[in-house]
Computed example of a mutant assay.
Amino acid sequence: MVTIRLVQGDITEQSADAVVNAANSSLLGGGGVDGAIHRAGGPEILAECRALRASRYGRGLPVGQAVATTAGRLPARWVIHTVGPVFSREEDRSELLASCHRESLRIADEIGARTVAFPAVSTGVYGWPPEDAARIAVETVRAARTSVEEVRFVLFDERAYRAFAERLD
């Protein structure tokens, strides 16, 4: 069974086998967590992302999928990039958000990662309410069949931290 921990802080400072990047589908960096990981990790991450775009993901990484690259200068071995869905009140996209977590753990198993640090996927500019994102993330991780021993949710602000903490009580 996976141990789930919460940390309020900066995901780029986490010492873990893998950190999950809430990427955009281009894989070429952006704002929020994505931009922070690319900036802190350095050009090695972008170089591998460009290679992925030139080969398997010419149209970008689909929403709900995940892929791993080097972590560059981050204190992790790998970055697992996943593209979260944009929140919608008109359409239930929670299965796509759950898929981000399941697929990230599947990739973690493939690369042999035992500790994985996740951000609150889709809660930034993609507008997912942190309380609902926490419910989906925690339920999905708890139900996952994985060799990952520890999942650390690294939450940037107090609201997200509280939302995840309520789910773990």
Rank of each mutant, 00 (worst) to 15 (best):
P85Q: 15
N21E: 08
A165R: 01
P85C: 06
F118R: 06
A117G: 02
A51K: 10
L61F: 08
A137V: 04
V20I: 06
G64W: 08
G31M: 09
G124L: 10
H101M: 06
R159Q: 11
T115F: 11
R142M: 06
A47I: 05
I45T: 03
R59K: 14
V33W: 07
P62I: 00
E44D: 05
R56P: 00
P62T: 01
T140D: 02
L168W: 10
Y57T: 03
R56G: 06
V154E: 02
E13M: 15
V86N: 11
V33C: 02
R59P: 14
V148K: 07
Y126T: 05
R5F: 09
W128P: 04
A18G: 05
A51S: 06
R162F: 09
A36S: 13
T140P: 04
Y161D: 06
G58P: 06
G60V: 10
A23N: 04
R73E: 01
R152V: 13
F156C: 13
S104I: 03
W78T: 03
V116N: 07
E166V: 13
A66H: 11
G127Q: 05
Q65R: 14
G41A: 14
R142N: 07
Y57V: 05
E90I: 15
E90G: 14
S88W: 08
V67G: 00
A18R: 14
E103K: 10
A120R: 05
D157V: 11
A18K: 09
I4Y: 11
Q65S: 13
L28K: 12
F153E: 00
R152N: 08
T3V: 14
A18I: 15
E166W: 08
G64T: 04
R102Q: 04
I37Y: 02
G30F: 09
E149N: 14
A133F: 03
Y126K: 03
G30L: 11
P129F: 05
M1R: 09
Y126P: 01
E139R: 08
G29N: 10
A36R: 00
I4W: 10
G35C: 11
V33H: 04
R39E: 00
A47W: 01
A66C: 06
V2W: 03
L52K: 00
V67E: 00
R152Q: 07
A108Y: 02
C100Y: 03
R142I: 04
G9C: 11
V121A: 14
D10M: 12
P43A: 13
I107Q: 01
E90T: 14
T3D: 11
V79Q: 00
H101D: 00
A54S: 03
W128M: 04
Q8N: 12
R59C: 10
V63H: 01
V116F: 13
A40E: 14
L105W: 02
G9D: 05
L61P: 01
D17R: 14
S94C: 13
G9I: 00
G124M: 07
N24R: 12
E90P: 03
S15W: 04
A120K: 09
L168V: 01
I111S: 02
F87Y: 15
P85N: 08
H38D: 00
A54I: 10
E139Q: 10
